[in-house]
Structures are given as structure tokens and as C-alpha cells.
């Protein structure tokens, strides 16, 4: 097990230290520490029930962790202790955006409106908290046009531009996933947290998703933390992988490192504990995995 990160280097965007989350008698996360580096795609993987979504919910403020510290460091060097902020403040101030495992779109609003809602805080300010905008003063008109342009940009990126005026609920599943990511990007995040973005996608949609995520990272410099089950996605796009099991970290490193870690293999294949020890012992003896 790797030890907790002691210092925060400038290229670290998110640092989770000694995070624990208890639901009644269940310890969903137990003393978890991990680090997300700026400009990278970090994947959080693990078998079902390993506590991945719980980690996400702690980072994005939907759960208050029982213990631990979550530090978000922005480009400018400004730091936020996420466990002290409420969910909407984390997006608004700390610039962490997220998507959900069960897609949560505003299904009765159009695709474009979904992206405009995501720019709420910026537009609120521009409209003088509604008052100025209502009487037609201030910069609201200009900002509203800019917001539509930003939305157009992300619609093109997500290949949704033809469906811009359709209700979000009318989109096929894969498009809904991409829309949710585009919507999160419209909040202008520095860290984007994706909860199983490839779940339920067909291979072609999965490929489109990879392209979208890569272009987000490369063009905007947004760091991405994602939960994923689809190993092809994980191995292909992530720069860094963290593996959870039973709320604890069992491996951490590059995709190749993780892929060959016997503990990870055991966790995924569901091998008995003593067998794992055997495998580890073999490995220590110099045997090939």
C-alpha cells in the first residue's frame, strides 16, 4: 500500500487524504488517499461495491465524509478544502464538475437549454442577479450571446449540434452521456469527475467518448477523474489508474503497472485470499505472473 502524499506539488490538482466514509455500520471507504495530477486522465476502478461512487460523492460534496481531507488546488494556486464546502459551492467556487452514473439531464429542457443552465452562475452575475437583466441594463445581452456560443462550441465537440433544439430526454443513450459531459464542461471546471461515462455505450459510441475525453484534456487542460468498468476505455485513455476494493486502495500507478498487479487481478477475478498470497509469493520468488 502506498503511503499518503505528504506534500502537494504544483501539478497535483486534487489530493484526497485519509478519507473514510461510514454508513451506519458499513465502512464504505476506509482510510483512502489518492492524488489526481493536473492535465491527466485518472481512472478510479474496482469491482462493484468497492466504494468508487462514494468517493465521487465525497469529492463533489453530495456526501460529507466521516473523516479525511480533500484538497483542490486550482491553476492559480488557490486551494479549497472540499469536505468543508457544500455540493453547489464545489462546482461554483472550486471548479469541480461531475456527471452521474444514472444520467441526470434536464429531460424536458432542450439540449441547448441544458448547456445554458450549466452557465447559471456566470449569467446570474451578468444579469445583475436578474434585476438589471429584467430592465434590459448591463452586460446580460452580450453574456447571453457568449453563453450560447460556448454551448455551440461544446455541442460541436460532443457531436450534438444537430440536436441542439430537441428535448434532452429525446436523445439516444450515448448522446445523453455526451451531453452530460458537455454540460459539465460548460460550468468551466478545472477538474471533471465522470461516473461511468462509458456504461451502456456501444463500441462506436465508446470510441466517440474516448475522442471527446482526449480532446477535453488536450485542448482545455482540464484534468479528468473517472470511474469506469470498461477496461478498454480505462487502458486506452487514462494516464493514471487507482484501484479500489472494499473501500481501500489496492493499487495505484500507470495502466500497465495496474494491469499486471496480482492484487488487482485477484480482486477482479475474485480469487480466494490465500491464493492471492500464493500469487504474491510466487511473484516475490521471481516467477512470471
Amino acid at each position: 500500500m502506498t503511503s499518503a502524499i505528504e506534500t502537494m506539488t504544483p501539478d497535483t490538482i486534487l489530493k484526497v487524504e485519509h478519507l473514510s466514509m461510514r454508513f451506519g455500520g458499513l465502512m464504505a471507504i476506509n482510510d483512502l488517499s489518492l492524488e489526481v495530477r493536473r492535465g491527466e486522465i485518472t481512472a478510479l476502478i474496482g469491482p462493484n461495491g468497492a466504494g468508487k461512487t462514494t468517493v465521487f460523492n465525497c469529492i463533489t460534496g453530495f456526501y460529507k465524509p466521516t473523516m479525511g481531507m480533500i484538497t483542490m488546488r486550482q491553476k492559480g494556486g488557490k486551494e479549497f478544502l472540499l469536505e468543508r464546502l457544500s455540493d453547489f459551492e464545489i462546482t461554483k467556487h472550486a471548479k469541480v464538475a461531475r456527471t452521474f452514473q444514472n444520467i441526470r439531464l434536464f429531460s424536458g429542457l432542450t439540449v441547448l437549454e441544458n448547456l445554458l443552465v450549466a452557465q447559471h452562475n456566470k449569467l446570474m452575475k451578468a444579469s445583475g442577479y436578474t434585476v438589471m437583466g429584467l430592465i434590459g441594463l448591463g452586460s446580460y445581452k452580450r453574456e447571453a450571446a457568449a453563453a450560447i456560443e460556448l454551448a455551440r462550441h461544446w455541442l460541436e465537440k460532443a457531436d450534438l449540434i444537430d440536436r441542439a433544439d430537441d428535448p434532452a430526454g429525446d436523445l439516444p443513450y450515448g448522446a445523453q452521456r455526451r451531453l452530460e459531459i458537455a454540460r459539465a464542461m460548460c460550468t468551466g471546471p478545472e477538474l471533471l469527475c465522470l461516473d461511468e461515462p462509458a456504461a451502456g455505450l456501444n463500441p462506436r459510441e465508446s470510441l466517440a467518448l474516448n475522442t471527446l475525453l482526449n480532446s477535453i484534456r488536450d485542448e482545455t487542460g482540464t484534468s479528468i477523474l473517472l470511474i469506469e468498468h470498461d477496461m478498454s476505455v480505462v487502458m486506452e485513455i487514462s494516464d493514471h489508474v487507482v484501484v479500489l476494493e472494499y473501500g481501500q486502495k489496492i493499487s495505484d500507478g500507470t495502466p500497465d503497472h495496474v494491469k499486471n498487479d496480482p492484487k488487482v487481478i485477484a480482486a477482479y477475478l475474485g480469487v480466494e485470499d490465500d491464493e492471492v498470497e500464493e500469487v504474491i509469493a510466487e511473484e516475490l520468488d521471481g516467477g512470471t505472473p
Binding site: F88, E89, T99, F100, L105, G108, L109, H120, R183, A184
Partner: peptide, 14 residues
Amino acid sequence: EALREDEIACRSLG
């Protein structure tokens, strides 16, 4: 209107 559609999603958007 977004609140009517999905409150949790609203909070996730700040």
C-alpha cells in the same frame, strides 16, 4: 425549470 427537472443535477452545476 432545471430545478423542476432534476434538483441534484442543478446542485452539481453549481
